[in-house]
């Protein structure tokens, strides 16, 4: 049923690219477990219906799927991203759900790794504010038009974006200094003495 929704969306926006449907009829993302499949298969299976949306028309698509029948996707579960380093792209993922119609849909936006920018949907679903901040913090994707785009998980002076596949961890300077100083303090103390 939700796959029909994607077709409906494509009818209105020809520029979107729906996910290829899985072959099994009941691989909808919920319901009983799908039967075991052979290994060595190389096709990427999408268990949740959805579509790739160009960044330019994201805002309009979002407004339509929130407000208009038959979508009414009024609840945004999360915003996140996947780093496809080999292809040189990030995929920004939006999971949408309808509290009234009880159906769900994924929207994905491909952004280049060099200059990751995409419009912010905070004006459409207010709850995505922190999700976008988190994605910005961990992936470095800039959401244009976000009211308050700051780091949320890491400290402000953190280097790099940790969830990127090519991230290299670097101990902050002050921590190294503090730990070295602590080392020096306890040098030469015998056991039983307070360190």
């Amino acid at each position: 049923m939700s796959w029909g929704l994607v077709e409906e969306l494509q009818r209105r926006f020809p520029e979107i690219e729906p996910f290829p449907r899985p072959e099994e009829s009941h691989a909808e993302g919920h319901g009983p477990a799908a039967p075991a499949r052979g290994h060595g298969e190389t096709k990427f299976t999408h268990h949740v219906p959805g579509a790739w949306v160009p960044a330019a028309s994201l805002l309009e698509v979002c407004r339509v799927v929130r407000d208009e029948a038959p979508f009414h996707l009024d609840y945004c579960s999360f915003v996140s991203a996947v780093d496809w380093m080999a292809d040189g792209t990030f995929e920004v993922v939006y999971h949408l759900y309808s509290m009234t119609e009880r159906h769900q849909m994924l929207l994905k936006v491909r952004v280049p790794r060099q200059s990751p920018r995409t419009p912010s949907v905070t004006g459409i679903w207010g709850g995505t504010n922190w999700h976008e901040r988190e994605t910005y913090d961990l992936f470095g994707i800039v959401f244009e038009g976000h009211p308050d785009l700051r780091r949320i998980m890491m400290t402000e002076d953190w280097h790099g974006h940790p969830l990127r596949k090519d991230y290299v961890y670097e101990e902050p300077r002050w921590l190294v200094d503090l730990a070295t100083q602590r080392q020096r303090e306890i040098e030469g103390l015998g056991l039983g003495e307070r360190a």
């Binding site: 499949r37 299976t45 999408h46 949740v48 996947v82």
Partner: peptide
């Protein structure tokens, strides 16, 4: 165990609410 290529979003009701795991 090796899982086939693909993505899935599973939702459960944890004591705090709608816990979803998006797995690629």
């Amino acid at each position: 165990v090796k899982l086939p290529k693909g993505e899935v979003y599973a939702r459960t009701e944890s004591p705090r609410g709608d816990l979803g795991v998006y797995l690629v």
